[in-house]
Nucleic acid binder design. Structure first.
Length: 831
RNA sequence: GCCGAAGUGGCGGAACUGGCAGACGCACUGGACUCAAAAUCCAGCGGGGUAACACCCGUGGGGGUUCGACUCCCCCCUUCGGCACCA
């Protein structure tokens, strides 16, 4: 690395513009559908086209791009596509506010964001771009809806649903966070509405079980899905109703406490309630039901809501004892879980305990813990733990663990119950009362009922010239030419479904579509999906841990069952990247701490911007924005520029193969080059620790500067220099693709560095001939010695003991033990 | 309440399998270059202590295992995230 002459400034504007042009003209990021090379599918969560890239996007796409570029250099065909999650409320709200039609607003935003992504230099195959709001895309979203419908996985029913008054639409359970709309934080209300659902509960167990097949997912995300699915195993038990032929079926996880039941309690909305209420109690009961209905989910479930209940005046029989048990309703029982009723076992369930104390219901102990005597009169709280059955007839003496299967088996024999699993997960509500979404392709006919739109009539197009004002009904209701149609079955007058689909439907299958983005004969080409799926690496924010990621898993399992894919899980490896923070908190307009990518790109260029977000923290951790940190990355790139550009000409002419048996600084320089290749390769490939990979490259650059400072130019081995420079450029390529490509050209290469092979290191060149060994006495570092790499443990030990520092510490003591770790340390233990 | 993750200099972070704590970067300090500044280059940079060494302390706190612990085990504290009347 020689003395530079006239320095040329690092003009990133020019470099990046020229590279963008070259890349576009050469179509270097286009990936073939099929080839001999192994495939790798690298995917980042596609964005909502808000019109502006934010730092979170920059981070997400920079991470994905490193993976994609690295894998390409490693010899894979990398599918790395981009698209737009383009339906949704903001477009409609913008339309209402500014009078621009949602379609126009959305397409303009897409154009703007596409340009920003191109500025960032992400290696997308733009020929595969998809937008969920394009009729050529949502045609297949509708097709998939009908596929689900035909297989009994889509159904319409009246149910209590979550209603967001601000968004003027219903929400899925997953979109309600702590009783609030996850989008706008408005408290959700409960409404009884007839809505479309997807039967995700049919897949609850597989969604749970198959989490085990995802070792490449973060435990955190798997845990969140596990919590959300909320599997509990127990049994269903029949309690005959006194004076009637029918019975109440109850779900419980504790069949072992069946002898401790002292009351039965139903959800207020339970269908049996009216017939179980005695006439004189009805007015009071009806009032109670009304009150429970009107309360929001939030009021009813969050916090220390007081438990309230009422006797209905009827009784059922404990199936094991024949004992009469009063039937009640209570606000703490949820209609949608289990069977909508609870057997009250106050001695062993805290909620039942509180309820029983309040209403003076009897408490009966049926589980006795070892070495303790529970007394129903004096106990201060329920005992839910382990113990032996008492007051339980022939089951007395069994352990809780043994009693559960024993009682289940007995009930099963008698036809009084059966083992059963319950889930917290509810079916996915997919109807939305808004305009900017894929219309649900169903027609209602007075004669034929709900009729699916025939496949050949898809897409059901969204009408234009519609008023978007949210009224609580879909704006499509106000579009007569849309609503009025013919029944596909009988040809008579009929009307269309006016609700649109949850946008999470559109995003549940887009990764399939990328494999065949323009296919018109089906949602995708099976051969292409088979080649590319599953996604090898998926990257995005953890906020989708449940919503998008669980829906996508559900879709994939349905598609697998219907033979439309051979994979059962869509995403083999998942990386959830951390947030970008400023001043310790999430960037937001209201806090005024937003850093605009546009501005940073303009001031420092894409390479610096990318480098900073990759260097400042490992990908899965939150990243604190630092203007000075960006400055530092810019400085580093400038340093690379000043190092390489003056050498470009001589590097191009130098021999490509370095001589063997080098000594001194030339040998050390080679060693550093190969050490860095090893470190960067391992950090990127096995750990995704881009921050440490970049610091290794920085150390290499520092080493190259030292090399040139310490070695007169004639003594530098040209081949060593060439090897260092070329590998530096290759290693830098995934992180700073523009500068790397520019320098690659300048050092005499004709093609793009992004078509180059990733460098390999030579293990034999990593070997050092000397090692610094730490000398400890009783575990404390007291000295260091330099030893030959070949020195025996015994020799190293001898040498360590001879050090004067060590000698003085050994004086008057006895050496108990000496531990030698080759090439690392000697620990002398003395007494 | 239940489940999970994380706590390391002034800051972002590193230490991968138990082996020199603080790589790399930022900030800061001193020096070189300059009329001067910026840029750049060189050096220093956990705390105490010393003229300089020595030495002592130090990875949220307390205990333990080990020749040796940021790393393993037990208890506790703090912060963040998920679930939360789910029978």
């Amino acid at each position: 690395m020689g003395v530079s002459g006239v320095e040329e400034r690092y003009n990133f504007h020019q470099i990046e513009e020229q590279a963008r042009k070259r890349w576009a003209e050469g179509e270097i990021y286009r990936v073939p559908d099929f080839s001999e090379r192994p495939k790798y599918y690298c995917l980042e969560m596609f964005p909502y086209p808000s019109g502006k890239l934010h730092m979170g996007h920059v981070r997400n796409y920079a991470i994905g791009d490193v993976v994609a570029r690295f894998k390409t250099m490693r010899g894979y065909d990398v599918l790395h596509p981009m698209g737009w999650d383009a339906f949704g409320l903001p477009a409609e709200n913008a339309a209402i506010k500014h009078g621009v039609p949602p379609a126009e607003w959305t397409w303009n935003n897409i154009a703007a964001m596409r340009e920003q992504l191109k500025l960032l230099g992400v290696s997308y195959d733009w020929s595969r771009e998809v937008a969920t709001c394009h009729p050529g895309y949502y045609r297949w979203t509708q097709w998939l809806f009908l596929l689900f419908y035909k297989h009994g996985l889509a159904y319409k029913r009246k149910a209590p649903v979550n209603w967001c008054p601000s968004c003027a639409t219903v929400l899925a359970n997953e979109q309600v966070v702590a009783g609030e709309c996850e989008r706008c934080k408005t408290e959700v209300q409960r409404k009884e509405l007839e809505q479309w659902f997807f039967k995700i509960t049919d897949y609850a167990d597989r969604l749970l079980q198959d989490l085990n097949k995802l070792p490449g997912w973060p435990d955190k995300v798997k845990m969140m899905q596990e919590n959300w699915i909320g599997r509990s195993s127990g049994g269903e038990i029949e309690f005959p109703i006194v004076g009637r032929e029918d019975q109440i079926t109850v779900f419980t996880t504790r069949p072992d406490t069946l002898f401790g039941v002292t009351y039965m309690v139903l959800a207020p909305e339970h269908p049996l309630v009216p017939s179980l209420t005695s006439p004189e109690r009805w007015p009071e009961v009806e009032q109670f039901i009304q009150r429970a209905r009107s309360l929001s989910e939030l009021d009813r479930t969050v916090g220390e809501a007081e438990k309230e209940g009422l006797l209905l005046g009827s009784y059922c029989l404990n199936p094991l004892t024949g004992e009469e048990v009063p039937i009640m309703i209570a606000n703490y029982v949820l209609l949608e879980y289990g069977t909508g009723c609870v057997m009250g076992v106050p001695a062993h369930d805290q909620r039942d305990f509180e309820f029983a104390r309040k209403y003076h219901l009897p408490i009966r102990v049926v589980i006795q813990p070892k070495g303790e005597a529970l007394d129903s009169d004096t106990m201060a709280e329920a005992y839910p733990g382990e113990g032996y059955l008492v007051n339980s007839g022939s089951f007395n003496g069994l352990k809780k663990r043994e009693a559960i299967p024993a009682i289940n088996a007995y009930l099963n024999e008698q036809g009084l119950g059966r083992a059963k699993v319950a889930y917290r997960l509810r079916d996915w509500l997919i109807s939305r009362q808004r305009y900017w979404g894929a219309p649900i392709p169903i027609v209602y006919c007075d004669h034929c009922g709900a009729v699916p739109v025939p496949d050949e009539d898809l897409p059901v197009l969204l009408p234009e010239n519609v008023s978007f004002k949210p009224t609580g009904q879909s704006p499509l209701v106000e579009a007569p030419e849309f609503v009025h149609t013919k029944c596909p079955s009988c040809g008579g007058a009929a009307r269309r479904e006016t609700d649109t689909m949850d946008t999470f439907m559109c995003s549940s299958w887009y990764y399939f579509r990328y494999t065949s983005p323009r296919n018109e004969n089906g949602p995708w080409d099976l051969d292409k999906v088979d080649r590319w799926m599953a996604v090898d690496q998926y990257i995005g924010g953890v906020e989708h841990a449940i919503l998008h990621l669980m829906y996508s898993r559900f879709f994939t399992k349905v598609l697998f069952d219907l033979k439309l894919t051979k994979v059962e899980e869509p995403f083999t490896n998942l990386l959830t990247q951390g947030m970008v923070l400023k001043d310790g908190t999430k960037m937001s307009k209201s806090k005024g701490n937003v850093v605009s990518p546009e501005e940073i790109l303009n001031r420092y260029g894409a390479d610096t911007t990318r480098l900073f977000v990759l260097f400042a923290a490992p990908p899965e951790r939150d990243l604190e924005w630092s203007d000075q940190g960006v400055e530092g990355c810019f400085r580093f790139l400038t340093r690379v520029w000043r190092l390489v550009t003056p050498l470009a000409g001589t590097v191009a002419k130098a021999p490509t193969v370095a001589p063997e048996g080098l000594v001194g600084v030339n040998r050390e320089m080679r060693r550093l080059t190969h050490l860095t290749i090893k470190k960067v390769t391992e950090d990127v490939e096995t750990r995704f620790n881009f921050n440490t990979a970049i610091s290794a490259i920085m150390e290499m650059v520092n080493g190259m500067y030292h090399y040139s400072a310490r070695v007169a130019e004639p003594d530098q081995e040209p081949a060593v220099r060439r090897e260092a420079v070329e590998n530096l450029i290759r290693l830098l390529a995934p992180f700073a693709p523009f500068m790397a490509d520019e320098l690659w050209g300048r050092t005499g290469h004709t093609g793009s560095v992004h078509k180059e092979a990733w460098p390999e290191y030579r293990p034999d060149l990593l070997v050092e001939d000397q090692a610094t060994v730490v000398v400890q006495v009783n575990g404390k570092v007291r000295d260091r010695i330099v030893v030959s790499a070949q020195a025996s443990d015994e020799a190293v030990k001898q040498m360590a003991m001879e050090q004067s520092r060590v000698q003085s510490l050994l004086e008057g003591k006895t050496v108990v033990k000496v531990v030698v770790v080759p090439k690392k340390l000697v620990n002398i233990v003395v007494k």
